[in-house]
Write a protein that binds this DNA or RNA. Sequence first.
RNA 1: CGGGGUAUAGUUCAGCUUGGUAGAACGCUUGGUUUGGGACCAAGAGGCCGCGGGUUCAAAUCCUGCUGCCCCGACCA
Length: 590
Amino acid sequence: MRLSQLFNLTLREAPAEAEVTSHQFLVRAGFIRQLAAGIFTIMPLGRRTLDKIENILREEMNAIGGQEMTMPVVHPADIWKETQRWYQIGSEMGRFKDKNNRDMVLAMTHEEVVADLVRKDIRSYRQLPRLIYHIQTKWRDDPRPRAGLIRVREFTMKDSYSLDADWEGLDRQYRNHYQAYFNIFHRCDLPVIAVKSDVGMMGGRMAHEYMYLTPIGEDTLILCANCGYSANRQIALSKKTPPPPEAPLPIEKVSTPNAKTIEALADFLKIPKSKTAKAVFMVATIPAENEEKEVFVFAVVRGDMELNETKLVNTLKAKELRPATEEEIIAVGAVPGYASPVGLKDTLVVVDDLIPQSPNLVAGANQEGYHLINTNYGRDYQANIIADITAVQDGDACIHCGHPVRTVRGVEVGNIFKLGTRYSDAMGCTFLDKDGVEKPVIMGSYGIGSGRLMACIVEEHHDDNGIIWPITVAPYQVHLVSLGTQTNPQIQLAADKLYDQLIENGFEVLYDDREESPGVKFMDADLIGIPIRITISERSLQKDSVEFKRRDQLEKRFVNLTEIHETIRTEIKILTDQILAKVVEVPFEG
RNA sequence: CGGGGUAUAGUUCAGCUUGGUAGAACGCUUGGUUUGGGACCAAGAGGCCGCGGGUUCAAAUCCUGCUGCCCCGACCA
């Protein structure tokens, strides 16, 4: 491709709204353009990189038996009503009516469409197992798109769906994906870790997220350097160490003016925060018989710990959870800042499982300016539910080995779910097994966002001047730069000839044939980030040579024109092999 | 949905406090010079100052309503 013909404009400066590196470089180099919040156009260079990424996705999916297809982006709402997700998902779902006033849905994912296909087409165990996938647009009206392609509203995802007759089959397909996903990310030269995660809106039994670790990530992960335990903070567990036992002391009301926070309370009473109980008020929406009800929840955790809302949601089997308003808190007889589980009535009390083992805690007195010291669970109050509802914090003891864990940030680049029969049951996907018994199809679903993946690759591979594409996903392999063509027509001829030869030899070449100064051409080459740069100029032609430089190295060298093709071939192989060496078996962490 | 910021040329921004003819740099066009790390000279083109009301003789500037975009939080495969 001649750069003079390419639909592309590089920008000297990034738009003011671009904050993260990948957003800045992808826009400046002309890979993407923003149309609206969280909605991007993929430009020709970006398209080529995404094609590379998507081909890797295809190869790895096909390798585990995947069959590519394409499912629609627009769905009738009926199938989403069947699985209840029409009702469960809020404003994030794109809804509209067609000309006949029928409810329609923009695809957020494709479980419903798959289930509809399965119930119509799968009848016998002989048709199982199957693995189908597609690479298709999704719409999720995220309340807060940000960070360029990292978090968008419209995006492309490779999503695959496994269909099995039994749970062993699901286990097999799940493990196949577990390894295939590592292969995909490693072939893109993106380091990732797999962590156990919450199943969220997908429902199901087991899930892993593939995380690229970076400070710009929005997810917090818990990692144990000793035994390798890893989990999303939403579901991470830790070993909670109970404090030394103490004989229960008599409960006593003390004056604590202005001690509305745990911090202030601990300071005022000169006690550690671990000797206090913290009240957190939430309102949960819990599905009941045919309706749903809002329930006021009084959650109690120790003052030195934090409530993990995901754990609380799962404990309550709630659909939604939100902080209670001040009015709601007062309405149940509690006093904000001085709230206490002692003496509360008609309220769902959920107590963290460490509270019963922590004697003589300071809690509120439900009276402005007063706290109770020496409250003890069981003696002074009871809970409706005792459960682990606290968030793991940096330095907590690992659930498996007790070693202190650390917290890191990450971006979720892929996930795998064991759905089980969640969708089969809801939509009637059954088959007849060998014994003529009707059974539900067992499903799994597996996703990778290709745009987010591209952005993460840029986060991982860049320097101050621009992107440094891994050869496996680079839009072109070779960036050919000609210098001084206006003053010396011979250079132009030589460059054109070399360009044609490189194409003939099967290389993917971007040829900067523009009438620009050397500085501009080199800066653009660095920004766009193609792995190999070849410069042809008066200086090089005097030696019958071109200058060879790799984007990831500083050194330049002259290579004779007769040898350059072989040099490029060798270097591409070196670059490719370096990446493929990272594609290795990863032990399954179930 | 809460909090904060912002909107002026293709891009990055100044101008707004104190109302009075729309500015800079880069980019773009034309001509010439230049050619190994974002060149130089000359001449040009390019604006509903986000949108709607209001105040005023006069509004980019003051008041007001709305919208877009960005950040933090909530939320989220």
